[in-house]
Nucleic acid binder design. Structure first.
Lengths: 344, 344
DNA sequence: CTGTTAGCGCCTTCAT
DNA sequence: ATGAAGGCGCTAACAG
């Protein structure tokens, strides 16, 4: 029933109450073995009596570590992103590190964060999600004085940064190959802009896989079968409607993400095309809604990618890794109800 | 090309280089007006020369403030939650405060966080999303020595905590009333458990609104028209399928969230019921996918709720509010294509 | 206007 | 095994 919220107890208060030096209290807190059982329990008693909790800020200053990990992430309402973040939070929760999140919705903010967040006065480590460094970012990031792990992001000239990625070229190939196997020859690809200010690269790599699969099957690439626009369901819908009005319209569409695949499904519905009878559709990611829609897609390990990134980061706190890890997570083709062999 | 990442410059280095006392540097950093233009620019020169950035940890210790805000949130992959979080991040980004996020997926963690996070050694303020305090939480939270804002959470006996809520009773009433106006008399309500370990309360309040609307129209409540289960699309689907097999099955369903409404739509599809001809469906939230599905729903201001909560929190840093705010955000009925007047 | 000094709370030697 | 003391980098109060 105390009225004024009195100041929290400090290590000094504990020392006084337990009648020990404050170094001893510190040792008890940090579980140093070299404290006699007797004094240790005296200290513990004082701690719980005073409801003492060590001040994290003071601890950080003294340790020279922030006990904090930053995640820099674009558009964290996108399902694929939140699932990764969930994995990150999940792994970090078991550690002593706090997770601080920076959401990127503009290029300016992206640049600001890449320059200012990875500093060791600020955080102990940085996770960068789905934002591949541009050429000019590489030296900045490689020179950063804190460990960085890229998740779903990459750059060819990286020599010092750890990465957890998925082989998007392979994923694109597998998706396209699935369609080809079903007998499709006119296969469209719907994606966000292959070149974009944020430098999202996954659509680019998936596109490469798409083209490889095509040429592997002797099918020439036709640029009118590639539609690109902003990311989003409606944009995808608009793009694909154009494509579906061609004389020799595609019989199958590979969408660069499940979200975009939803737009394709919507377009088909509007145009009175049955899926998969008249049009096969395959997505990418296997976000939660994909199963609901019965969407055939390429699954990637979203949650696990976040977990794995944290593991790598925490490891690199212990010891600088001999050479940077580039871990490639597998993809898996999930066949549901939106793809079938070409009928008409 | 320096090999060893040298230690970051400190305020002392700047002072030395600029040939001033370090108090002066501090003043320049903190934009104290009482520094002559001349020395100020000398200091600025030194700062940029040394690439100096103040150490946040030291700053925090000295200020006695953490410059950090925590968000405690359940299941942050749920669209309604991420949209709120986005609003929070958005507003906080313009401030000097860092956002640290705690995701709750178990009751144990929920309790742990509620007890341990709201301490002023740890954070300057706490946002709690969609987790209404239980009776035993109220004293803990009210006694906390940092400002707390509840978002989409409430408790009748709260006297000191700020809240940003939506009138879910009203929302439930509006949704149900819409159905009644369309001529429906047999109206089902699908929700997650009204009583649950996390103490999510929104479904409970929406249920109250549902019942009020019914009795207002002279329609008796029938418990077999209320299905509750875990939150989720599939669970909702399962529930509603039972209901739709009754002899006098409902002609309309009010789902406590858009996600659950999706399950209802799926069930209808499976059972060969046309929406809205055979079954009207209304959801709640107006998450992004709702528009795509043409789902009639009750919109709440998700993003804005996060922004508003941050505003209130920041205000309460300046001055303890005379009395706690309880801000009620409006809801809006969004009529789309899944509700129509009762036909058969 | 500006330099100096005393903490902020903790960790970590260094003695004892 | 334990106490004392110095320092982490910064802010703020106090002299000048």
């Amino acid at each position: 029933m105390e009225a004024v919220p009195s100041k929290p107890a400090t290590i000094r208060d504990v020392a006084r109450l337990a009648e020990v030096g404050l170094g001893t209290v510190s040792r008890v807190i940090n579980e140093s073995p070299q404290v006699s059982k007797a004094t240790r329990s005296r200290v513990h008693k004082a701690i719980s009596e005073l409801n003492y909790v060590p001040n994290p800020t003071a601890r950080r200053l003294s340790l020279g570590r922030t006990m904090t990990v930053a995640a820099i992430t674009p558009f964290f309402t996108r399902p694929s992103i939140t699932e990764r973040l969930r994995g990150i939070e999940n792994s970090l929760a078991e550690s002593e590190y706090d997770l601080i999140i920076f959401n990127v919705e503009t290029v300016a903010r992206r640049d600001e964060l890449i320059r200012e967040v990875p500093r060791r006065e600020r955080v102990d480590g940085v996770l960068i999600l789905s934002l591949s460094p541009r050429d000019e970012d590489v030296p900045i990031l490689e020179k950063a004085d804190v460990p960085i792990v890229l998740v779903d992001a990459n750059h060819p000239s990286l020599t010092r940064l750890n990465r957890v990625i998925v082989d998007d070229v392979e994923g694109g190939r597998v998706a396209t190959h699935h369609l080809i196997e079903l007998g499709h020859r006119r296969i469209g690809y719907i994606s966000d802009f292959l070149d974009n200010a944020f430098n999202f690269t996954s659509s680019r790599y998936r596109f490469q896989g798409y083209r490889q699969a095509l040429s592997g099957a002797g099918i020439p690439f036709r640029s009118e079968y590639h539609g690109q626009s902003e990311h989003g369901r409606y944009e995808a819908e608009r793009l694909v409607k154009i494509m579906l009005n061609y004389e020799d319209r595609p019989t199958a569409i590979f969408a660069a993400s499940d979200t975009q695949a939803m737009g394709v499904l919507e377009a088909a519905r509007d145009l009175g095309l049955r899926v998969p009878d008249d049009l096969s559709v395959i997505g990418y990611d296997d976000i939660e809604v994909a199963e609901y829609l019965g969407l055939t897609t390429v699954r990637q390990l979203l949650f696990e990618s976040g977990q794995r990134a944290v593991e790598i980061l925490l490891e690199s706190f212990e010891q600088t890794l001999a050479e940077p890890l580039c871990e490639v997570l597998p993809t898996e083709l999930i066949i549901r109800k939106t793809t079938s062999s070409r009928s008409g």
